[in-house]
Design a protein around this nucleic acid. Structure first.
Lengths: 344, 344
DNA sequence: GCTTTCAGTATTATCGTTAATATCAAGCAT
DNA sequence: ATGCTTGATATTAACGATAATACTGAAAGC
């Protein structure tokens, strides 16, 4: 806090009015005549007065701030969400409190407590686990407005998110329909219990024919490009025979692409690649990478709508509402040719 | 703010002690005997009490929060900084207030006012213009702790940053030393008055021989991959003859790379590419892209050190101190071959 | 026995604002 | 003249915490 800033009291002292008159004048009350208001406004200007929002928050019992917890700021789609959230909230007069959980439950819980202590009016959360949500459910039970950005229709918590199961199904179906029979899945989330994408991948296999092979489902260390590279390396070394790779995000896909380029494998002729999130780096990669789109604008807008709605409500929160946005598959060069078999 | 949360008063009412006793007990004062403290702690636990930081901030006259203004959350290096800042501040018990200025001065000024109203203890700012800093200078004059993340030694404002001039010099010198005589510069910042990189580029030409050609210096619409692609397209169409491209960030470089791949130009044989920031997508691109490293950890750590130091100081702020970190050039495949002329 | 000391707890003021209510003079009708 | 509005401003009490000071009763000292 800056060392000494003007308060209402200072304006009052300088103009001779009472603190309350100054407060009313600055807030444009009709009870204050224009002449008085002008004098006060001028003095406020001269003293560089800015209302102390800390004091305002205390008396108004709202901070006009919303907490946003993200698993990882290194994922471009999450930062895009962060950017969109900040912009939209700022338009509506709210500030954004950010925190990253680094995909650990302990940190996530700590950040929630921090936001609660700071009396954020509500929270938007990408929980690191889509299953362990008790701490968030407890929050909601105490009438704290929370909206998750990944969805579980049965969690009893409001959520707005992309339908990842449907997205994975679409991507896998696209590959299967293009003749691929053995499709690898590089999915960092599954190992943490977030199995939506894996489920979509498996269901596509079940419904469309090819049997899935658990050995083709690998867990990269994290969601980075490097991890995509090494996961692909791992798959290749094990000589399992596959003609396509689906990854749980575009960074991993770009890592797979780099592996292929480096080892002389043609994309999509030898290996087809499909990612998730549709980040710009995938679109403009040397070989543009197919991707399941993440509709940042839409998810953000609806999530903010909802959390502000919950904030505005008095008393008990209404029943939780889960909105899943159907994602679109963007087919690009990395997967747009029919696969005709090993020598096709 | 959640609808009804426990206050000291509630614990006091439930235990029969006074508010002050409860406050002292929870803060571990030695004036409260263990027996009493235990009773109070148990009740606090039962009521799910969390101190109201808004009230604490008001009375302590510090919020333990720092504002961070970033030009654009879509730039991976800026989000890396954001992540590092949040992590480091959180370790030290501070919260981070984020805002993006979207590279407009008006928004930057608005966000500063927002942070000031929220009584952030200090601010870290990537100003959108490195020259128009009057509003920030005014802030500093009123003893508000501010640290910029781009540096102008003469601005009279504390700063910690990479030495972009030196970085551009190194990158350009590297290309010149590899035989390149006509080097294009795609720099989005120069048009906004942030000419450090351009200056380094020009100085390298002056000192090492080749004359620079203003027609080779282009301004992309923004810092995106797409803009890098189209800026390269623009350069190529004008048939100016060049064998290397230096871009002001890696996204632009990746756009240039994509252009080359798409149009059958070999990198680095036909066109060498060097970017800025060393983001992972450049390192793992189909052709790994050379880049001037941005030492996120170091810049972040020093900037936070400094702003916390300024916050800790009572009274007048000391003289501004500008720290410029010398960047390292990471040479990768996109520029690591000698250029021997048009048919080399 | 009477002050002194001290541990344990309570009371009061404060932070900077807003909200509810109070005051007080001028203007007006009766 | 007396009371009633009403317009302009002041006073007081919150909001939820901390900090300084005040009280109270029992043990200790002489």
């Amino acid at each position: 806090m800056a060392k000494s800033v003007a308060r209402l009291k200072d304006i009052a002292a300088q103009t001779g009015f009472s603190v309350n008159t100054v407060s009313l004048a600055l807030r444009g009350s009709s009870r204050i005549p224009d002449e008085t208001r002008l004098l006060i406004l001028q003095m406020a200007e001269r003293l560089n007065y800015l209302p102390n929002q800390v004091a305002q928050s205390l008396v108004r019992r709202e901070t006009r701030s919303v907490g946003l917890i993200i698993t990882d700021l290194k994922n471009p789609v999450l930062t895009a969400v962060a950017q969109a959230v900040e912009l939209e909230l700022s338009k509506r007069g709210y500030s954004t409190l950010f925190a990253t959980s680094n995909n650990t439950l302990a940190l996530e819980e700590r950040m929630i407590e921090t936001f609660r202590a700071r009396r954020a009016d509500g929270m938007l959360i990408f929980p690191c686990s889509h299953r362990q949500l008790d701490h968030i459910r407890a929050l909601r039970k105490r009438n704290y407005p929370v909206v998750l950005l990944v969805g579980d229709p049965d969690a009893g918590i409001d959520a707005v998110c992309m339908d990842e199961r449907a997205g994975a199904y679409k991507a896998t179906a696209h590959l299967i329909n293009n003749g691929h029979k053995r499709i690898a899945l590089i999915d960092g989330a599954a190992a943490r219990g977030n199995t939506e994408k894996q489920e979509g991948y498996l269901r596509a296999h079940q419904q469309l024919g090819p049997t899935s092979d658990p050995r083709l489902m690998v867990d990269p260390r994290d969601g980075s490009v490097a991890s995509g590279y090494w996961a692909t390396d791992d798959l290749m070394r094990r000589n399992l025979g596959f003609s396509a790779v689906l990854t749980s995000n575009d960074s991993l896909a770009l890592g797979a692409l780099r592996y292929c380029v480096k080892h002389g494998l043609r994309v999509p002729e030898d290996v087809a690649i499909v990612g998730f999130d549709n980040i710009e780096f995938a679109e403009y990669a040397a070989t543009p990478v197919s991707s399941v789109n993440y509709d940042v604008e839409r998810v953000t807008r609806m999530a903010i709508e909802r959390v502000l709605e919950l904030i505005g409500l008095a008393g008990e929160l209404p029943e939780a509402q889960v909105i899943q946005v159907e994602p679109e598959l963007l087919v690009r060069e990395s997967s747009n040719r029919r696969y005709e078999g090993a020598n096709g």
